[in-house]
């Protein structure tokens, strides 16, 4: 892509230019150092214009109805005058590293709207990175005047903990399963939920959903809540029939009011800033280390040896790390 100067991006984003916003996100997501550097310069300058939105993270097993839920919630928010941005982090990459980004097909009305912005992002192929990119993308959207930012992430891998570390409110979407209610979703995910919503409570599922709701409520009682002022409620909803959606949003607002009042929201965001800094450092070290010519040269060979069982993993790791120490001497 042909690069413009930082000013072009900054102005465009602040003027809420859809195309430039899109290009800025591309810049941020790029794996090229030059792009990243420019992207960070843009973000630095946009930071003063951020912080005003409601940041909502949504996770759930594949097919739980996250995208459909966002469509329903988003359309409802548009009707009440909000500007909604949606970031869908899609880990559904194929072995080739390519991916199919189909979330927007479930957000038909939202994607057609002039006051909504939806950006599906492939996470395939990039190491780590997702976190930094998603967070900065979220901030850029805020600077572009979106007052609700929703991040969709599939509840597999590490993505959900990462996302929860950048939002104000974390919604876990579940579906009424057959009996075993902790369907594939990790316990850790439940622990970071600010609300659990049992989706697809419609048709002959209504009773099952209510049953699941009660079970989760009991299960949640056994956990210590993250804030003494907020016990995560368990709700039911139907993204398709648009029932229970408003209740979820009301809960988000209630959470916001309460935690703003107690000052916890500010604390949460401060803590997130610190995490952010640390993760930038982590990323930096990682990029720097793996970018070393020495490491680049040795790693593939040594990896192969470990894979084939010719070398112990511990020894191999030390050998690579040792290169680093050696290099630092001169």
């Amino acid at each position: 892509m042909s690069l413009k100067d930082a000013e072009w991006y900054v102005q465009g984003v602040l003027e809420q230019d859809r195309k430039i916003l899109a290009k800025t996100i591309t810049l941020i997501e790029s794996s090229l150092p030059a792009h990243q550097e420019l992207g960070q310069a843009v973000v630095d300058r946009l930071l003063p214009h951020t912080g005003e939105s409601v940041r909502v993270g949504i996770t759930g097993v594949p097919g739980a109805g996250k995208s459909t839920f966002i469509e329903s919630l988003g359309v409802m928010l548009l009707e009440t005058g909000h500007r909604v941005a949606v970031l869908a982090v899609d880990p559904s990459s194929t072995r080739s590293g390519g991916s199919i980004l189909a979330d927007k097909t479930r957000m038909e009305r939202l994607s057609a709207s002039d006051v909504a912005f939806i950006r599906p992002s492939p996470s395939g192929g990039t190491l780590g990175g997702v976190a930094r990119k998603t967070r900065e993308t979220m901030l850029v959207c805020e600077a572009a005047g979106f007052d609700v930012v929703i991040i969709e992430t599939v509840g597999v891998g590490q993505s959900e903990t990462t996302v929860s570390s950048m939002v104000d409110f974390f919604l876990v979407l579940l579906i009424p399963g057959g009996g075993d209610e902790l369907q594939g979703i990790k316990k850790g995910v439940i622990e970071i939920a600010d609300v659990i919503a049992i989706n697809k409570a419609d048709g002959d599922n209504i009773e099952k959903a209510e049953k699941a709701r009660k079970e989760y409520e009991t299960a949640l009682h056994l956990l210590t809540p993250a804030s003494s002022n907020w016990i995560p409620p368990v709700l039911t909803c139907s993204a398709i029939e648009m029932t229970g959606i408003k209740e979820v949003w009301d809960t988000i607002l209630e959470h916001r009011n309460k935690l703003t009042g107690t000052g916890e929201l500010r604390e949460i965001r401060q803590k997130q800033s610190l995490d952010w800094m640390l993760s930038i450092i982590d990323d930096g070290i990682r990029d720097w280390f793996y970018g070393k010519p020495e490491v680049k040269k040795k790693l593939p060979k040594i990896s192969l040896e470990v894979e084939k069982g010719l070398k112990e993993p511990t020894i191999a790791a030390r050998e690579i790390l040792f290169t680093l120490r050696k290099e630092n001497k001169d």
């Binding site: 194929t94 072995r95 080739s96 390519g98 991916s99 199919i100 980004l101 927007k104 097909t105 492939p122």
Partner: peptide, 10 residues
């Protein structure tokens, strides 16, 4: 996608 493209579908 199998060939390494990122494919959006509308």
């Amino acid at each position: 996608a199998d060939l390494g493209f990122d494919v959006d579908i509308s």
